[in-house]
Design a protein around this nucleic acid. Structure first.
Lengths: 243, 243
DNA sequence: GCAAAAGTGTTTCCCCTACACCCATGG
DNA sequence: CCATGGGTGTAGGGGAAACACTTTTGC
């Protein structure tokens, strides 16, 4: 133990202090009533009964970090394959986990289309719940998950401005209104409807599906879809999405 | 071992497969002749004699990841405190390290002012060298350090556009030309001198030091310094740096 | 006096912004 | 027929881009 250093009791394996590595996922989903996060109620110590991000230990020597994230996603929430998965960052303060071991976690952000994951079935699915953003922000999460969650939100909101990853949250066919609402959540204020639609359609990446929404109490909006292959091509040419 | 999975031989501690965690640093420095990276020639297996990013194992239970990065920076390169240190990402493929253990590394980006670190003294400093970017890009680095390095360069170049972190590379007092050159390296093409200077000075964050450069074979340029406290204030008000 | 880089103003054009009205549908 | 949100065009202003010449210094 170094002089004057704050340390925790170390767990040893032979002579080596041990480290464990987990992955945690911040899973975002969009619904008619806004952006949600998937949280689980922990069924075991530590923090039993508290809300936390889904996650778990990686299988050393067997899997990549991203693969571990996909596995946890599936095991804990029943989500097969997210539309978007990206690494957020790694959190490794020695005291972030109250257990003896030094547990380092690699956090991932996952975006899913909620209409593709109606059933929340899965190993621990009984305890997984979609929580609206405002409500989630008020909760005190286990470990340092408050920090991870707020970092994830910041990353997502920033990225929505210059990356079309937000379309991974919307259903395959969506009205432009939904895109605007998602964008407004991200930038934190309302935008002009006409200008927004103009800029969005000028990219040429939104295709009119010739369908309209149903079950709506007023004039039905057209449904569009995002052309990912055209986007990839434009991007390869140096073009960047920016709304 | 899971069915059909590519795995490596696992190192066990009692019943648990082991993981080790390292930190690696991509250290950038600016000089009159451009951007450089600090690489070390490995003095031990694996990859003995090859070029690699400085880094090493974290001290489990004792230190934060960032603290580990600072320690490695100091031990391997003699750099006391970088002007900027940020986490890049974590790389965890089971086969990324040829040794038995599954070694996961957390990569950091460090920016330093080269005029503050003349002496490269340090534990292993004998093998640390500043390599110009072009040359570094051509080298085959140990482990997956090629990947980490190119990710770091991409992150740095992107960030230079909308974050003043580049001033952490320049000396405290610098001519505007240097800022422009750094920026041009980042965006990959030349920009108009007048427009660039105008936009830069309009931010109000650059102070004329009333000094001029010396030892130059032509008209000497004024030296400016970046006002970090003013920047923090503007940023807190919602303003964002963008050149 | 000439080579080499520093430094400076103005015009043009495009894009972003602001803004108001008609349309389609369900009840 | 009315309430609700869907959908559209245009004019004006501000900021980015383009552009050329004078100044200073060392040799």
């Amino acid at each position: 133990m170094g002089p004057g250093q704050k340390t925790k009791t170390k767990t040893y394996c032979y002579d080596f202090p041990m480290v464990s590595v987990t992955v945690d996922c911040v899973i975002f989903g969009w619904d008619n009533d806004g952006l949600h996060v998937l949280l689980i109620e922990r069924g075991e110590e530590p923090f039993e009964g508290q809300w936390a991000l889904p996650g778990g230990f990686i299988r050393a020597g067997e899997e990549d970090l991203e693969k571990a994230a996909r596995r946890e996603l599936s095991e804990e929430t029943g989500i097969g394959s997210p539309r978007h998965l990206e690494q957020l960052g790694t959190y490794g303060h020695p005291d972030r986990d109250p257990r003896e071991e030094h547990v380092i976690t690699v956090a991932y952000i996952a975006l899913i289309k909620r209409d593709e994951h109606r059933p929340q079935g899965g190993t621990d699915a009984r305890s997984a719940h979609w929580i609206p953003m405002e409500e989630a922000r008020r909760k005190r999460l286990a470990f340092d998950h408050d920090q991870i969650f707020s970092d994830a939100v910041e990353r997502l909101y920033n990225k929505l401005r210059y990356d079309p990853l937000g379309f991974n949250l919307l259903p395959n066919k969506f009205p432009l209104r939904d895109v605007q609402q998602l964008y407004e959540v991200a930038i934190g204020h309302e935008v002009d409807k006409r200008n927004f639609r103009k800029k969005l359609l000028e990219t040429g990446l939104l295709e009119d599906t010739q369908e309209i929404e149903t079950d709506v109490k007023h004039r039905a909006a057209k449904l569009y879809q995002f052309n990912w292959t055209a986007y990839q091509k434009r991007r390869a040419e140096g073009w960047t999405f920016d709304i």
